[in-house]
Amino acid sequence: MIYFDKVCKIYSNSVALEDVTFTVLPGEFISIVGHSGAGKTTLLKMILAEDCPTSGNVYFDSVDIHKVSKGKLPLLRRRIGSVFQDFRLLPNKTAYENIAFTMEASGRPDDEIKSDIPHVLELVGLGGKLANFPHELSGGERQRLAIARAIINQPDLLIADEPTGNLDPINTAEIIEIFKKINQIGTTVILTTHNKKVIDSLGRRVITLDQGRVVRDDKEGKYAL
């Protein structure tokens, strides 16, 4: 589904990614671990076409992501749901509107928007928070809202960049449970994290980055830093 082919990324003087090659199969749940600055976020930015590689290619279902025209990029991004450590919600929109915006942008009809949003908010445990603005929600609730937004368009791939970085252990465990459920229904999940407990409890494939290079790729990996 995702294929990194000898990807390098150099920012002015520092090397963020160096000769990174790996493949993600459909339905996989992959964790990417590494110290701060190891290149985890850069790697995810490549998949979202937020950044271009200096050399090498990144493919999404055999399409070179960085050769997709600007006009067609939104179509590609609609197939990817993304969740971030800082949530990146729209502050001036309620929980309902935050999700509705994503659906509207992808051209979903009004009746579908009305029926799906309460359902997905229920799914992430935010059933009664439809009319709340992000600043009225706790950290854990905001991240659930971000996940709800990420999965509303039933993406093929879910990217989560340090999604539990700002959360307490209970919320962390609950969020990871939600990711597992999403993966169970067939969505591919790529997760970056610092959290040893999370990685060890998952028991799934782990790619370890160090100074921009892939140093380990274990099928049922543990946190090894």
């Binding site: 600007k70 939104p74 179509l75 991004r77 990146r88 919600l89 915006f101 994503t102 942008a105 937004r149």
Partner: peptide, 10 residues
């Protein structure tokens, strides 16, 4: 930037 990430077109 969030709009772009969720696939909103121009």
């Amino acid at each position: 930037s969030v709009m772009r990430l969720v696939g909103a077109g121009n």
